[in-house]
Computed example of a mutant assay.
Amino acid sequence: MQNTGIIITGSGSAVPAACLENSAMTALVDTSDEWITTRTGIKKRRIASEKESLSGLAAVASLQAIAMAGITAQDIDLILLATSTPDDLYGSACKVQAALGANRAVAFDLTAACSGFIFGMVTAAQYVNTGVFKNVLVVGADIHSRWVNWQDRTTCVLFGDGAGAVVMQASSSNNLLGFELRSDGSQNHYLNLGYTAQSQQLTKDITVGKGNYQHVTMNGKEVYRFAAQKVPEVIDKALFRANISVENVDWLLLHQANQRILDAVAQRLGIPDHKVISNLANYGNTSAASIPLALDEAVRAGKIKNNHIIAASGFGAGLTWGAAIFKWGK
């Protein structure tokens, strides 16, 4: 089977209607706009209501990406939904498929937390490269407001909800230039949303754990240390695989976790501030949605243009991290 190249031809994004500003969070926890802004760079975030769904946000973002790519939902062969917060524990990709009317598409969820979108892009590329599929929709979406402890100021101020999507298509060109993916489960305890069981006895000899999940827990200092060290390394490795120097990168697009992390990574790589894409102030950490959401905004604002080279990197729970170097457009 002959290898096929990949182009990234469409993007889309969606966020909930409600906006929670830093000043309003003082009613929830002992904090202030200054405390949040100076430590994170976040000013506000979008929060999903009980009537809004992850699959609904994902579908809106997907339709935008499909329209920009100039194809229809029936042309989609595969839908990869990168999320850690599905509407259904069994997965939400099939609900997105149904909402789009993409009845030819295979659909499944992929979970790699805040690295999910990068992992999703690389996974999609393998299907396209081998000629199995021609049109792949990669979606990153998360609703962490469902799972944060709103009395814990170390986590609740960080997260927002949203979705972003791209269309990746088979081509004679290959615009996914290089990538590198990593995982280290020995550091899982620094950031997780763990299962917790309530004991329930079924018979005299058999006991089961009644399922539930705890709130998001994070060791912020260790996660910062991990990101500041590992993200520049993985981007360097991806650039090496792409045979591209950092000077040729047009945009650095990182998972929008903390402005301090974005600044530290850019400084270590020697990338100037004007090449760093950041919309963290308006949306907070939207996990798997953060990279495609920021990408879509930059494309629609005219910042990212055809053939611009983007160095993107996701990092987070697992712990997982990865980077992809790609050109935008046809």
Rank of each mutant, 00 (worst) to 15 (best):
D33H: 05
H144W: 11
G316L: 03
G162C: 09
K95L: 12
I66Q: 10
A18V: 03
F133N: 14
V96Q: 12
G185Y: 13
K221R: 13
K303T: 13
K327E: 12
F240K: 15
G209I: 06
D205A: 10
K134W: 00
N103I: 03
L252T: 03
I206G: 01
G160C: 08
D250G: 11
K330L: 06
D250S: 14
D236M: 06
L110M: 12
S11C: 15
G116S: 06
A59P: 05
K43F: 03
A24M: 09
A257R: 03
D30P: 10
A227I: 02
A324H: 01
K210F: 07
L202M: 13
A112E: 05
L57A: 08
N129G: 05
T111G: 00
N192G: 11
A124W: 09
G41Y: 08
P272L: 01
D75H: 10
T196Q: 15
G318I: 04
G131K: 04
Y283C: 04
A105S: 15
D109Y: 09
I325S: 00
V157M: 11
R153Q: 12
A93K: 04
F108R: 10
V132G: 01
W147K: 04
L239C: 09
S62W: 07
R241L: 03
T154C: 00
R45Q: 07
G56T: 05
S115W: 03
D152F: 08
G101I: 07
L293N: 12
S287E: 08
G270L: 02
A141G: 06
T4A: 04
L293G: 09
Q2E: 10
Y224L: 06
F179C: 13
C156G: 12
Q74M: 08
T37M: 04
L253Y: 13
A311N: 01
L57T: 07
Y224N: 03
A238L: 04
A18S: 08
A294F: 10
G140N: 09
Y283P: 02
Y213D: 00
Q2G: 02
G185T: 13
V299S: 09
I8A: 06
R260F: 07
N306D: 14
S11I: 04
A323Y: 04
A165T: 11
Q2K: 12
N307D: 15
A102W: 09
D87T: 06
V139C: 10
R153D: 12
L20Q: 14
L293Y: 14
S290P: 12
K330C: 05
L176K: 00
